[in-house]
Design a protein around this nucleic acid. Sequence first.
DNA 1: CGTATTTGACCAGCGC
DNA 2: GCGCTGGTCAAATACG
Length: 116
Amino acid sequence: MDRRVHRLVLPEDGYEWKKYGQKFIKNIRKFRSYFKCQESSCMAKKRAEWCTSDPTNVRIVYDGVHSHTHHGSSPSSADQPRRGSSNTSSNGNQYNLLTQVFGDQSSNAPPASRRN
DNA sequence: CGTATTTGACCAGCGC
DNA sequence: GCGCTGGTCAAATACG
């Protein structure tokens, strides 16, 4: 919630996300927020990265697929254990990965620049 | 009081 | 083998 002034406005996707972490990635020199789907059996996750000086350019990365429609109803109750279990790992899961870039990153996004 | 959000610490995988 | 990074969870805090 807005404990203070919300300095970052994330685009609503129609789903509910719960922030479970935030870290500064040195590799890209950007902040990264980790969001998880509020749904129960929804293993869909969302990552938001933005420049430290350009919070307007937010790159939303959707990791995983929504086992439920944004309406509700969870057909497949895929109950998966915590990470660390040596289960079948990469089962035939159709893992979607969407990367959406918001804001004006045309003059930004260096291809392969390490350190200024 | 309950819920949502925040920050820190811990763990695992990879590189050298 | 060790160090580093990235990722996740837990606890504490704040607001309604």
